[in-house]
């Protein structure tokens, strides 16, 4: 009678931009795919996001940024996760991210970047296929 393990996602918006329609949409898309999604809201510091991932024992951290701060915030989240021993957390990002920034973010440990126009089915599929088995 083991309850099914559910994928736990932290959806967060690092930095100061106040546009969270994308993040909210993705939170709902993940929930509709059967995941348990903790939405942390706007204006999160990397420390707050990582603290949430730690306490919630998250499998996935989804980051959304529209204000151009991704090159600092996304790698910083990955770095802090590692510092806390959360090496197994899948970090994905989305929002307005210029193509030329994507390779650098991936090198920094962000597993995927989903820009505008990405099919939500593809995002769910990517997450389901790439979460580490713990």
């Amino acid at each position: 009678m083991t309850a099914k393990k559910r994928i736990k996602v932290i959806m967060a918006k690092p930095g100061l931009d106040g546009h969270d329609r994308g993040a909210k949409l993705l939170a709902r898309v993940f929930a509709e795919a059967g995941m348990e999604v903790v939405y942390t809201g706007l204006r999160q510091t990397p420390e707050m996001i990582v603290e949430a991932a730690l306490q919630e024992d998250a499998d996935v951290v989804g980051l959304s940024s529209l204000s151009g701060v991704h090159n600092y915030f996304f790698p910083r989240v990955v770095e802090l996760l590692k510092e806390k021993g959360l090496d197994n957390v899948l970090v994905v990002g989305g929002g307005i991210i210029p193509d030329e920034d994507v390779p650098g973010l991936k090198d920094a440990g962000v597993a995927a970047i989903f820009g505008p126009g990405t099919r939500t089915e593809d995002i769910v599929k990517f997450v389901e296929e790439n979460i580490p088995n713990t």
Partner: peptide, 30 residues
């Protein structure tokens, strides 16, 4: 959700003050 089993856990949004305090541990449960 009774249909998909998924959940949107939104209580943390209102707990910003407690956030980041090492002596406060918040866990959302579906």
């Amino acid at each position: 959700s009774p249909f998909t089993g998924g959940a949107l856990l939104g209580d943390r949004i209102r707990m910003q003050r407690a956030f980041g305090d090492p002596d406060v541990f918040i866990r959302s449960m579906a």
